[in-house]
Computed example of a mutant assay.
Amino acid sequence: MIKMLHKMGIKSNHMYLAGLGSIGLAFATWMASKNKEAAGLDRADRWGIFVGEWAPTFFAMGVALRIEETHRELGEGMEEEMYGETGRKTTERVHAGTGM
């Protein structure tokens, strides 16, 4: 699922922002339910908790996407190191300053 989200262009920062937004939304739904509904504080608390449960999920998905992004960046760097500019696989090692 994380690879699919990554391929769709969703970044870890998007999930972190969604997590922060859900915290704000939890507070807003709690306030709206408390002030507008006659069901009382118990129902407002339930709404706030329901929406507030989304934040850890978004943050966890953000961490998973960050790992995927880092994994992809490292993989591309290793591929470039292995194949170089020519596109052919090289086994030579270049040592700085030794002429080897």
Rank of each mutant, 00 (worst) to 15 (best):
G19A: 13
L41N: 01
N13R: 07
H6T: 14
G62Y: 01
A44E: 00
N35L: 14
A60K: 14
A32G: 00
E81D: 06
G9V: 12
V51F: 03
T57W: 01
L5G: 14
E69H: 12
D42E: 13
A28C: 08
E73V: 12
S33W: 01
G99Y: 03
D45G: 05
G87R: 11
M15I: 06
L74W: 05
H71Y: 03
K3H: 13
Y83M: 13
E73I: 13
A39T: 12
G40E: 15
K36E: 00
I49E: 07
G9H: 11
I67S: 12
R72V: 13
H71S: 10
G48C: 05
E69S: 14
F27M: 01
V94S: 06
H95T: 10
A38L: 11
L25S: 03
E53T: 15
W30G: 00
G77A: 15
E73F: 12
K11F: 12
G77N: 15
T91L: 07
G84Y: 11
A32E: 00
V94L: 11
A39R: 04
K3Q: 15
V63H: 07
H6C: 15
R93L: 06
V94F: 13
A64E: 11
A39Y: 07
E68S: 15
E68K: 13
M82G: 06
F27V: 01
G19Y: 08
G52I: 05
G24M: 03
L25D: 01
E53D: 15
G40S: 15
P56Y: 07
G21A: 06
T57C: 03
A55D: 09
F27L: 02
R93A: 03
W47N: 01
G24Q: 04
S22E: 08
I2C: 08
F58S: 12
L74V: 10
V94R: 09
A44K: 00
G62L: 04
L41R: 00
V63A: 08
E37N: 13
A64D: 11
M31A: 05
A18I: 07
G19W: 03
R72P: 05
D42P: 05
H14N: 06
S22W: 02
D45N: 07
A55F: 06
A18P: 02
A96G: 11
E68W: 06
L41G: 01
L5P: 04
K11I: 15
G40M: 14
W30V: 00
L5F: 14
E92S: 08
K34C: 01
R43S: 07
W30K: 00
A55I: 08
G52N: 05
G24D: 02
G24S: 05
V51L: 11
G87A: 10
F58Y: 09
Y16M: 10
L17R: 10
M1R: 09
K34A: 01
T57V: 05
F50M: 14
M78D: 13
M82P: 05
G99C: 03
H6N: 13
S22V: 04
F27W: 03
G62E: 01
R72L: 12
I10V: 08
T29I: 02
F50C: 10
V51G: 02
F58R: 09
M78A: 13
I67P: 09
G84V: 14
E37P: 02
A60H: 12
G52P: 04
F59L: 04
L5D: 15
H14P: 02
K34R: 09
